[in-house]
């Protein structure tokens, strides 16, 4: 088995407690354990993380890349979901 056959892992790092894991990059490794070790050496050499997730890239299901994708259309015509949609008289506080 050469490197080509090793699965691709996507790496997510939590930079500190209280924050979500964020995508940091990817790497190849033969198994999850090696993927974690390599991710530590590759993405947290300067204490950039307190927790790492590695996810097989093939396990990710993505929406289509097109930003005008009809997939996201249901959100486009619902401005009333945003607080700025509403007119509130001047002087009303804590709202």
């Amino acid at each position: 088995m050469t490197g080509t056959d090793w699965p691709l892992w996507e790496v997510f790092v939590r930079s500190r407690r209280g924050l979500s894991h964020t995508h940091a990059g990817s790497l190849h490794a033969p198994d999850a354990e090696m993927a974690l070790r390599n991710a530590r050496d590759l993405y947290t050499r300067r204490s950039e993380g307190v927790s790492i997730w590695v996810v097989p890239a093939t396990a990710i299901t993505a929406s289509s890349p097109d930003e005008k994708d009809p997939f996201f259309e249901p959100a486009a015509d619902k401005p009333y979901r945003h607080p700025t949609f509403y007119d509130i008289p001047e002087g009303v506080r804590h709202l």
């Binding site: 088995m1 050469t2 490197g3 056959d5 090793w6 699965p7 691709l8 892992w9 490794a29 033969p30 198994d31 999850a32 354990e33 090696m34 097989p56 890239a57 093939t58 396990a59």
Partner: peptide
């Protein structure tokens, strides 16, 4: 080293992807 890592992964059945 690459071969050993691959053999270890195969033996322990963790190459899930």
């Amino acid at each position: 080293v690459r071969e050993a890592a691959a053999a270890h992964a195969a033996k322990h059945g963790k190459a899930t992807a």
